[in-house]
Structures are given as structure tokens and as C-alpha cells.
Design a protein around this nucleic acid. Structure first.
Lengths: 145, 145
DNA sequence: TAAATATAGTTTAAGTATATACTATTTATT
DNA sequence: AATAAATAGTATATACTTAAACTATATTTA
């Protein structure tokens, strides 16, 4: 008989299950636009903060710059983004959405956010606020500790 | 100027950051045992519930059976698990930990759980309990809705 | 029983992700 | 200014992950 898991481990497992359940729905929604979750993240980030360099994009998405390379190659090939030489730094490339990428983002970003809100709405407004505050404090505490 | 993100989206982003921060620490700990997070999940699952068939392993870890194949190939090669023919079902394989796998699990599973508890301890006990309950209810509600 | 259906495991193709080493350029030191 | 150190992007090797098609075995059903 395996011993009962601690509350901490069960919290960690709940976190995984919640993420998995939401990611499943969000991924299905994005697939109808031929977007993967990783590509959506790039699209949404460039939509909110245009004109980023690849390293800045990597930092904001919590991935490595090497990861960004392949992602942008595929998105460039799909006509969603372009790379332009940085005017002041010969090493860097400015990444921008194409017209097609912007049009797509205008449609898919709000739908994505709406689906997130719909998932969160299974909790009462009070529980939703409590969860938000707890996770925000948790995140900050992890960053310090 | 991008509009301020909704509370729901910010909650979702907090969830990602918390997972990322914890996964970073947990991954580093596992790396000192030459284990990837995915391989640890298999190891811990077989440690807690021995004698699973590959599909059952996939179900419990929320991954596809195809994923399990390559994972077990690598872990078999590393001497951590073995596959035996199922006595009653000619299609299936029972997966078991080797002696080496069991020894490793005995050491690494408690350390892993301790690190999870240590991360959670940045929250007060009351906040930890609140988070546990909220996530548990969230998980159940997502499953129904 | 024979045929249809379902299931367990494998393979393949595509995408995601990291660490590491490498090139080119920029910034800091001396 | 010349050198050293740091940084941006790329390439490579390895691993993880899925969806889909496939093989072999079990189960259902007609």
C-alpha cells in the first residue's frame, strides 16, 4: 500500500490537472486556426508588444532563444511574422507580425482570452479572486525564496 | 497601448509562472540523478502502483501511449524498468521497476516530494490549504463543465 | 464459429524544448 | 585604438509530445 500523498504533493498534482484540462480546451480552439500553443504565444506577445527582438521574445515567453529560432522559422514560412535587421544592432532582428498575422491575432487573441474566462467561470467570482490572489502571491514568493 | 489583461487571463499567467518556477527547481534536482521530469513521472508511478500495463501508465500520466513507448525504451536502456509479457493478454506488457529502478525511486521520490513541500512552504499553512482546496474544486468543476 | 469491432503496443512525421557550441557583432577594459 | 568580454542569433544533438497509421491480439456480435 502506498502511503497517502501529502497535501503539498496533492496541490501540485491538482495544479497539473487544472493546467492539463485547460490546455486541452485551449489547444483544440487554436488548432481550428492552424495554430499550436507555442505559436499562439508568439503571436499574442507580438500583438500586445510589437517590435521585439528574438531574445526579448524568449525572455517574455520563458523559453530559450534557441527555441524561438525554429518557432519563427515556421511562423515566417506560414506568413505570420517577418524578421527585419535591427537599425542600431547588427546582431539583432526585429520580429513583426505580417498583415496576415495581425488579422489572425485580432480574431484569435480575444477568443482565446474568452475561453480562459469561460474556464475560470466554473469557479464563483469570489473563488476566482481568491485563486488569483493566492497564485500571484505564490509566484512572487517563489521568485524571492 | 495594449489593454489591461482581465483577471482571468492574469490568473492563467500566474498559473504558468508558478508551474515554471517550480518545474525549474524540480528539474534541476532530478537532473542530479540523471532523470528527466518525464522519466521521473514514470518511475514514481511504478513505484507507487507496481505492475502497470503501458496504456494504464499513459492514462495515469495524462499522456498518449505512443509517448510511453519511447520513454520506456530509454528507461529500459538505462536499466530502470523492464517489460514482461502479460500473462493473460498477448497484446500487453507489464512494466516493472528493476532493482536499480526501485533503489533510485526509494531515494529520489521522497526528495522530490520534499522539494515540492519546500516550495509550497513559501505560503502560510492557511494559504496552502486554501490553494489546495481551490485547485481541487477547480479541477473537479473543469472535469464536469 | 466467423466476421466485425475494439484494444495494446509500435512506428512515423511534425512540432516543441533544452543545452551546448559556434559566428558575428557590440560593449567594456586597458 | 586594441583587446577582452558579453550578447544576438544560429546549428546541432537529445529528449519529449502528439496524431495518425499500422500490426497483432482480444472481444463482441451476428
Amino acid at each position: 500500500m502506498p502511503p497517502r500523498l501529502s497535501q503539498e504533493v496533492r496541490t501540485w498534482l491538482h495544479l497539473h490537472r487544472v493546467m492539463a484540462a485547460m490546455n486541452k480546451r485551449l489547444t483544440a480552439q487554436l488548432a481550428s486556426y492552424n495554430l499550436t500553443p507555442a505559436q499562439f504565444d508568439v503571436l499574442a506577445q507580438l500583438f500586445r508588444t510589437p517590435g521585439l527582438v528574438q531574445q526579448a521574445l524568449a525572455d517574455r515567453l520563458l523559453v530559450t532563444k534557441g527555441n524561438i529560432v525554429g518557432l519563427l522559422n515556421r511562423m515566417e514560412h506560414a506568413g505570420l511574422v517577418t524578421r527585419q535587421p535591427h537599425p542600431d544592432d547588427g546582431r539583432a532582428h526585429l520580429v513583426s507580425l505580417t498583415a496576415h498575422g495581425t488579422t489572425l491575432a485580432t480574431q484569435v487573441v480575444p477568443e482565446h482570452e474568452a475561453l480562459i474566462a469561460e474556464c475560470m467561470a466554473v469557479l464563483s467570482p469570489e473563488d476566482g479572486s481568491s485563486l488569483h490572489d493566492l497564485l500571484r502571491r505564490f509566484k512572487h514568493a517563489l521568485r524571492s525564496g
